[in-house]
Design a protein around this nucleic acid. Sequence first.
DNA 1: CTTTGGATCGTCT
DNA 2: GACGATCCAAAGG
Length: 214
Amino acid sequence: MNRDDFMGDPVDVAPWLLNKVLERAGRAGRIVEVEAYKGAVDPASHAYRGQTARTAVMFGPPAHLYVYFTYGMHWCANVVCGPEGQAAAVLIRALAPLRGLEEMRRARPAARRDRDLCNGPAKLCQALGITGADNGTYLLSGLAGAAGSAGAAGSAGAPGAAGSAGAPGSAAVRLLDDGTPPPGRPAQGGRIGIRVATEEPWRFWVAGEECVSR
DNA sequence: CTTTGGATCGTCT
DNA sequence: GACGATCCAAAGG
């Protein structure tokens, strides 16, 4: 897994991200649901009406984390993809918890069952402790063959402020490939929670997975 | 199980 | 000044 894997169209990158692992501070989960947002040509994308302070990271280099705040109380996380200058991203909608379950339960007392820990875009950020401070984080730091971070300008806090890259248990948000391939035939359908372009089938999930959002 | 309404504030018009 | 790429508790079947 390297930076070039994130250069493509978000509709291609999104299903490829399924079964990868998102990790932070010892808490980790397998990505089981994603949505593609196509930037300038997608009315549902935050980047549709051009670059703003909030969306700056989306316009930067790929394989970085775009974190936004919504509904006055929730954080959501995206993986930036496509070439620099084109604002494309993949929203991470659900994880199947893998490690650090005790920490996640502590961070999300409202979750009654373990499958409720990360089965929504804001839930998984709460479970992993992802906030605006993580906006702009390079997701491949510390991986073999990965070069350094380029950082990015942002607005929601301190972009790329995460600590020493690559150290096990570091506070940095990272994307890992544990060898599990993406599903050969992922389930696909319309995106959730938007008012426009709802018919575009750009939501992908692992068929039969119990940790997919409601 | 499903449906409904309230919470809450950064961002852009 | 309006509105979210949402979540949760409560209420009804």
